[in-house]
């Protein structure tokens, strides 16, 4: 299936399969979503009940703020954003210029694993598109 917006086309099936692979490979990843940089949800996989629909636009806002802050501080490119919570983590990173990956874990000791699995997932989507 192709998700076609006015300007950009995304192969949703490919993205979905890559998100699914990531969740299968990483036990602690509870949900993963690909969202456009302007806040539209492209694809999502939820291993457990973890509503990510509204996270799409918020994720894009946060990523954009991360990019803006990084540019303001002249610290190169913003690689990823980590939101550490009482009950887990949220990781945001660019897949490519127009696409962002959002991953969620409810495991409090899983940050390293979540970040590395997310990087692999983002890379595999980038290659597949």
């Amino acid at each position: 299936m192709l998700l076609k917006k006015s300007g950009t086309q995304f192969n949703v099936d490919v993205i979905k399969s890559k998100l699914s692979e990531a969740i299968d490979r990483c036990d602690v990843m509870d949900a993963a979503a690909a969202v456009t940089i302007d806040g539209h949800l492209v694809a999502k996989i939820e291993a457990r009940d973890c509503p990510v629909n509204r996270i799409a636009s918020m994720g894009s806002s946060m990523m954009s703020l991360g990019d803006t802050m990084t540019a303001e501080l002249k610290m190169g490119v913003c690689r990823n954003l980590i939101v550490e919570n009482e009950r887990g983590f949220l990781v945001l990173m660019h897949i490519r210029d127009d696409l962002i990956l959002v991953t969620i874990s409810h495991d409090k000791s899983s940050l390293g694993m979540l970040v590395s699995s997310s990087k692999i997932c983002a890379e595999s989507i980038r290659k597949a598109l």
Binding site: S6, G7, T36, I37, D38, E72
Partner: peptide, 13 residues
């Protein structure tokens, strides 16, 4: 300070 990105939807028009 802007957080503008390229639109992927009908906004590009």
């Amino acid at each position: 300070l802007k957080t503008d990105v390229q639109a992927t939807d009908e906004v590009v028009d």
